[in-house]
Simulated assay, not measured.
Amino acid sequence: MPLRIFLVEDNPLIRQSMQEMLEEVLGAQVVDWADGEAAAIGAMRRAAWDVALVDLFLVQGSGLGVARAFEQRGAGQRVYVLSNYATPSIRERCAALRIDGIYDKSTELDRLLEALGQLQRL
Results as ranks from 00 to 15, higher is better:
45 R>H: 12
29 Q>H: 07
62 S>F: 04
28 A>Y: 10
42 G>R: 13
69 A>H: 14
56 L>H: 08
21 M>H: 03
67 A>K: 00
78 R>A: 01
70 F>M: 13
56 L>S: 05
13 L>S: 09
64 L>R: 07
47 A>S: 13
60 Q>K: 15
26 L>K: 09
69 A>L: 13
10 D>L: 08
63 G>I: 13
72 Q>I: 06
32 D>G: 06
78 R>G: 00
77 Q>Y: 09
49 W>M: 04
58 L>E: 02
61 G>V: 02
67 A>R: 01
66 V>M: 11
57 F>E: 12
49 W>N: 01
22 L>S: 02
9 E>W: 02
80 Y>F: 15
34 A>L: 03
30 V>C: 08
24 E>K: 13
50 D>V: 01
32 D>C: 01
10 D>Y: 12
13 L>N: 08
34 A>K: 01
61 G>A: 11
36 G>T: 08
38 A>I: 05
67 A>W: 03
60 Q>P: 08
71 E>Q: 15
55 D>T: 08
17 S>R: 05
22 L>G: 02
12 P>T: 00
33 W>H: 13
18 M>I: 05
65 G>I: 14
18 M>R: 02
67 A>P: 08
25 V>C: 03
62 S>N: 06
59 V>A: 14
76 G>Q: 14
43 A>L: 13
57 F>Q: 14
61 G>W: 03
32 D>Y: 00
11 N>Q: 09
49 W>L: 08
15 R>S: 09
22 L>Q: 06
57 F>W: 11
24 E>H: 09
28 A>C: 10
44 M>Q: 03
22 L>Y: 11
36 G>R: 03
19 Q>R: 14
14 I>S: 04
64 L>F: 15
20 E>L: 13
46 R>T: 07
69 A>G: 13
20 E>W: 03
74 G>F: 06
56 L>N: 11
43 A>P: 02
66 V>D: 02
12 P>L: 01
62 S>H: 02
72 Q>F: 06
12 P>S: 02
16 Q>P: 00
59 V>Y: 12
13 L>P: 00
56 L>Y: 07
51 V>Y: 04
44 M>K: 00
73 R>K: 12
9 E>G: 08
25 V>T: 15
61 G>F: 06
73 R>L: 12
57 F>V: 14
79 V>S: 12
29 Q>E: 15
52 A>D: 07
45 R>C: 11
29 Q>A: 10
78 R>P: 00
13 L>G: 05
36 G>S: 15
41 I>R: 02
15 R>K: 06
50 D>K: 00
28 A>K: 11
34 A>F: 03
23 E>P: 06
33 W>D: 06
40 A>M: 06
27 G>I: 11
77 Q>K: 12
25 V>K: 10
75 A>L: 10
52 A>V: 05
23 E>D: 09
75 A>C: 04
77 Q>P: 01
65 G>C: 13
79 V>G: 07
41 I>V: 15
12 P>V: 00
16 Q>W: 08
12 P>N: 03
59 V>W: 13
40 A>K: 00
22 L>C: 06
65 G>H: 11
77 Q>W: 09
